[in-house]
């Protein structure tokens, strides 16, 4: 069953590439820059508002909220975990498409 459709660099079948398809790498670079920017912002914001990594108007309820880059690592790890759990779940629950019809 050749239905895999996952490759970011897959060549379009018709040749009329759009801006997005021509600039996949540019978009990824932009994303990386944005990610770094959030870390820089956290590093700057903290000292500006007095305590390190403690923000204006935000009352931290738990210690990890004040760790540098906590939410960044959390977001990355949580995303990977969810996807990997999906990979584990698939063999358990996957059936043919017409499973209920047959």
């Amino acid at each position: 069953m050749n239905t895999e459709s996952n490759n970011l660099n897959h060549e379009p079948s018709t040749g009329d590439q759009s801006w997005f398809e021509r600039n996949v790498n540019l978009i990824i670079v932009g994303l990386v820059i944005a990610c770094v920017a959030t870390l820089v912002a956290q590093a700057i914001c903290g000292p500006v508002f007095g305590k390190p990594f403690f923000y204006e108007g935000h009352e931290a309820h738990f210690a990890p909220e004040n760790w540098f880059g906590f939410q960044a690592i959390f977001g990355f790890v949580a995303f990977v975990t969810v996807v990997m759990l999906g990979r584990l779940l698939r063999p358990l629950v996957r059936r043919e498409e017409d499973y209920y019809d047959s």
């Binding site: 923000y55 909220e65 959390f74």
Partner: peptide
Amino acid sequence: TSGHVIMQLQLLLFAALAF
């Protein structure tokens, strides 16, 4: 608040990076 915005952006953008 700046903290809330930055934390939320970190969570979402790094999740996108994971993708």
